[in-house]
Simulated assay, not measured.
Amino acid sequence: MANAVVTDNLNALEAEAIHIFREVAGEFDRPVILFSGGKDSTLLVHLAYKAFWPAPIPFPLLHVDTGHNFDEVIQFRDDLVDKLGARLVVAKVQDWIDDGRLTERPDGTRNPLQTVPLLDSITEGKFDAVFGGGRRDEERARAKERIFSLRNAFGQWDPRRQRPELWSLYNGRHRPGEHVRVFPLSNWTELDVWRYIDREGIELPSIYFAHQREVYQRDGMWLTSGPWGGPRENEPVTEMTVRYRTVGDGSCTGAVRSEASTVDDVIAEVTASRLTERGATRADDRLSEAAMEDRKREGYF
């Protein structure tokens, strides 16, 4: 009975997401899918593939690349794009730093710097619908989002202009220059994502599974060295078995101690966890009490 309930739930979530993809295809002129190579955006691409098969995915993929990504994730991103024959647009934060449109932060974290490249890319590409992999269970600012989230001409979110979504009816009307962020995974949980990955046999970057890595502890998180920097004098490096629950800018994405080397192991681990993946491993969400809310109002999330 329990397996039947899980299957019914996954079928309902899949059907909802596919409906949303097809609704956007019929209602908007130039959609784009945000794709980083992480598990949620990979799931988005998989669902888009199913929604339009046997035709190719009719939208390009857009990655706002901080330049501080994990090598395994970038390789996975490129391999999947080649496999699907999709078109990938990469907006490199480093380009915006080099020409003076952005300034490097003193703390070296580049996640907050993604907003301007994202909005510039949306404007340049004339994208009117932008798919994201946000889920309501991740963080309280995300929990307030509609599935169709209207953004103004500056990419900003205004809660007073959001529309009701009764009976799965989505209103994509927007003025010239505005666009809509679309979140097909809104009603999924982290556990739903992993159960669906298991059912569909979806491949993911290897860092989502247990492996040996040199890490150091900062602010209660296990970080690793990279082009974003390394440990301070008082932060000893140790080698341990870890995995990543979420991936992003390496300067602020922490690993968790884990022996989960298979999808089944991860499902068991997530089932027992009482912390969301962002709450446990993303320092950028800890910059302030309203860090994600602020980024959403500025136009990123």
Rank of each mutant, 00 (worst) to 15 (best):
L191G: 12
S121N: 10
R151P: 07
D65P: 06
R146A: 14
G85D: 13
E277Y: 14
K296P: 02
L169H: 08
A272M: 10
Y216C: 01
A268W: 03
V193E: 09
R181E: 11
E178C: 10
K39A: 14
S36V: 04
N111P: 00
P31N: 12
W222V: 01
P231F: 05
E139M: 09
R181D: 10
Y300C: 02
G250A: 03
V89W: 04
L118H: 12
V182T: 08
Y196N: 01
D78Q: 03
A255E: 10
P176N: 14
F301I: 04
N171E: 09
N152D: 15
V81K: 07
R213Y: 06
R146D: 06
Y216I: 02
N152Y: 11
A272G: 01
A91N: 10
L44S: 11
D120T: 12
L119N: 15
S121Y: 13
F131L: 11
F21K: 01
G254H: 06
S225D: 14
S288K: 10
T66W: 11
Q217Y: 05
V93L: 08
D294I: 11
W194N: 01
E203I: 00
A48T: 15
S225A: 15
N152A: 10
G155K: 06
H19K: 12
E259C: 08
F127P: 04
A51C: 02
G108I: 03
